[in-house]
Design a binder for these strands. Sequence first.
RNA 1: CGGGGCGUAGCGUAGUUUGGUUAGCGCGCCUGCUUUGGGAGCAGGAGGUCGGAGGUUCAAAUCCUCUCGCCCCGACCA
Length: 484
Amino acid sequence: MAENSQEFVQHIASKSENFSQWYLDVVLRAELADYAPVRGCMVIRPYGYGIWENLKGLLDKRFKATGHKNAYFPLFIPGSFLEKEAEHVEGFAPEVAWVTRAGNEDLAEPLVVRPTSETIIGHMYAKWIKSWRDLPVLINQWANVVRWEKTTRLFLRTSEFLWQEGHTCHRTKEEAEEEALKMLEVYRRFLTEDLAIPVLTGKKTEREKFAGAVTTYCVEALMTDGRALQAGTSHDLGQNFAKVFDITFLDKDNQLKYVWQTSWGVSTRLIGGIIMVHGDERGLAVPPRVAPTQVIIVPIMPPPHEETVLAAARDVFERLDKVSRVEIDAREEFSPGWKFNEWELKGVPIRLEIGPRDVKAGKVVLVRRDTGEKISVPMDNLESAVTDLLNSVQEGLYARAKQFMDENTHTLVDYEEFKAVMENKRGLIYAPWCGSDECEAAIKEETAATIRCIPLDAKPSDEKCIYCGKSSTSGYWVYFAKAY
RNA sequence: CGGGGCGUAGCGUAGUUUGGUUAGCGCGCCUGCUUUGGGAGCAGGAGGUCGGAGGUUCAAAUCCUCUCGCCCCGACCA
């Protein structure tokens, strides 16, 4: 019997030696997704889609709890709409897919396949909003969007992806700002509580913000290869789109005013985040809250015990089915050891082993995916043992990720050290910045690191800029990292 | 979009430099028997337009041209 992980058969690349290949192996071998016949597109397979469905359900609840309702807007947007907001066009033009022909006829007005829906939603809001009594408008949509990317990676960047985009309108600037920050907090809690992913929250620099936004807030997570992943964004749009799409209302003071807007979104990219934050040498580890299968029952059935063990396993299944997402793997063509490896690769949080010895003793063996720890529990308190263990795995994954993030966040004031960290272990660098676009650009040029966010509570710093060495009243301590 | 690499059975690959029988091997798959607490064993069997299209040649996986896709490193983005 293998006592440590080195002795387990490896069917995926080593995470520590070849992270990119490891990531791909996990996605393909765990059957999360596969390549589609169209360049840059992917098929999300049932197991990967199961994670998305759970994630979507939990997030949707949080949106409903904050007063939002779902709606659906069209996939096609008149080409002219996109061109109305100058920054917006400039930001998205290079990656927009156009429809210019239907059947045998050229379209009178070419259509774009939505890269995001600010414009078409803005157009509709202009029709719907007349009075301050119509505000706020709090709408979310779950949809697919298309961005013709040059370099694609499964889940992290594909030409088409699934996401949600919230689009809200408010009577005042303050209310919109409050909404953008409220949704940022919704994302932060969702990531930490449901996905077990610790995050930084903050706002983007001018260079990094959304095309058309006044302010972009974000949640950033650190992957275990030391690169940061933008996990979600919440934009304060000000009146930029309101002015372009003429979204006006008559206020209490009888004045015609433009609404104040926000938009916010997360995508299937989060699944990539789950893989890169929680995965290990053995494969994926799915946080229990979003795991399609939380408990996998592996019956061990040497003859002549097939019938008794299987009956006991089915009994266990019936009981656990009431408190968890459980499956039983009674396939005869695979050995127990084979199944152990397979379900670990797929990242199922708890494996339940039941064999002749357990049946006789009135017990089962539970094995947690995060630590590999095995415990034998009596049948009597099976439900509570499993429920507690699921919570414990959820917490264990978060704690491990949080510790990794803390250990890989470097507070620095010296640029040489900055460069050395970026060249070696990477991770997050917390450093003073004078606030100038030139220093930000130069650091990116020289180290590939970008400013991931300016922390929300950042106060102007009199520390000298890590790049130019100058003090500035507009400077802050900010987080740098190489990003996905 | 630049630089590099790779496409041979479901997966991983040998063969390509130097063209020459029926394209070889491992895993997986099918059948049977024995197995089952960390990827079981034996025996038999099926599976290939060598990414695609042109070309050179008596003869092409192998040489030439074009093309498609994927991976890695950069530039651009969720």
